[in-house]
């Protein structure tokens, strides 16, 4: 039954479910979702956490309606370029940022509501051969792009009216930057992972490229999801879509590596693999605080506690539809899980 398909399986050693099904939203158009996210939306001092779903040609905003019901309040229609992803931007309200393109990102657009003329609208933030983009604190957006042989790493400050208030460039490394993560604990530090498996560190304020540190060849194409500084070390949470299976740690979906930024030496701290008896490689995922979630090739979703170093929840694939997307909510312990049939389920993780 559908209820069974939406219920996490109990893992050995866990006495109760820590992923609770809350509600489900389904687009009547039957479009296949390419991404899902949450966004703060409101007016006159009141705001609520809404869900945003994207399919290739449109992006929809869903508001919560009691009890456990979602209402689609607006759909932005996009042009001929397909939507690839929704880019969450912290510290913003009434603003949805999306990336459009074919094999790689060609445009970044803002979708918003304009109270000036009481209408929903969209505006272009950036176009080009964009390799990576991330929403930063204080309504900023960082991206890496290539023009000819030159790489540009640029920060754009967004206004709630959809304007780009300010643009700042950071010193680019030689290799293409494929992912970014802000460093918790050091306000102006930012890290990136590159196409040749290095972690680079910037000073956001000055734009300086501070350090380049190699991750190693065992885990190619590593992507950084989170970084934090503690006790003089830089801890980076990485995913490894192309990691080789080993007897020691199986197929690790995420790894935590500690770098000494002064010497560029590193050591593995923790890896997150599936519990025995479950198979599947990492397809895509997201990290929030100490929680990591991933969609696996088996069509299941797994959740790990990075502090405990173990898998804490598993959503099995349904018999008729697989899980395809997993995102953490912008607030609280919400988990958004998307299925191949276009439906999105909201869970609470505790």
């Amino acid at each position: 039954t559908e209820a069974e398909q939406l219920t996490p399986v109990l893992l050995d050693g866990l006495r109760e479910e820590n992923l609770q099904f809350i509600s489900k939203l389904k687009d009547s158009s039957g479009s296949c979702a390419v991404d899902v996210s949450s966004v703060w939306w409101g007016a006159a001092g009141y705001r609520e956490l809404c869900v945003v779903t994207a399919c290739e040609s449109s992006v929809s905003l869903w508001k919560p309606q009691a009890p456990d019901h979602w209402e689609k309040v607006y759909t932005w229609q996009l042009g001929e370029i397909p939507v690839i992803q929704i880019i969450p931007v912290p510290d913003t309200c009434n603003l949805v940022c999306i990336a459009l393109g074919n094999l790689e990102i060609g445009e970044i657009r803002l979708l918003l509501y304009s109270s000036e003329n009481d209408s929903f609208k969209q505006s272009l933030v950036k176009s080009g051969n964009i390799k990576a983009v991330l929403g930063l604190r204080d309504g900023k957006l960082i991206s890496s792009s290539r023009a000819m042989q030159e790489q540009q790493v640029e920060i754009v400050s967004l206004s709630e009216t959809g304007r780009c208030k300010d643009r700042q460039t950071l010193m680019p490394p030689e290799e293409t930057v494929l992912a970014f993560a802000e460093v918790e604990g050091v306000r102006d530090a930012l890290v990136g992972t590159t196409a040749v498996n290095s972690v680079v560190v910037w000073n956001l304020k000055t734009g300086q490229l501070l350090k380049k540190m190699h991750i190693g060849y065992s885990y190619p194409a590593s992507i950084c999801h989170r970084a934090y500084s503690d006790s003089g070390l830089l801890f980076v949470v990485l995913s490894h879509p192309h990691a080789k299976e080993s007897e020691l740690c199986g197929n690790p979906a995420f790894r935590v590596i500690a770098f000494n930024p002064k010497t560029a030496r590193s050591t593995g701290v923790m890896f997150s693999s599936l519990p025995p008896g479950h198979t599947g490689r990492y397809l895509e995922g997201e990290v929030k605080d100490a929680w990591a979630a991933a969609v696996l090739t088996s069509g299941a979703i797994a959740v790990w506690d990075l502090l405990l170093g173990c898998c804490t929840a598993l959503l099995p694939p349904g018999s008729d539809s697989r899980w395809t997307l997993v995102r953490w909510s912008a607030a609280g312990a919400g988990l958004l899980a998307g299925r191949a049939d276009g439906s999105v389920c909201v869970y609470r993780y505790a």
Binding site: Q208, L210, K211, S231, K262, T263, S266, T267
Partner: peptide, 23 residues
């Protein structure tokens, strides 16, 4: 992880690297 594996650790690594890196 010990100091010997990772080399000498500095709590002020960000400020130190910022002062050493080219502007």
């Amino acid at each position: 992880c010990s100091d010997s594996d990772l080399g000498p650790i500095s709590l002020d690594w960000f400020e130190e690297l910022s002062s050493e890196a080219p502007p």
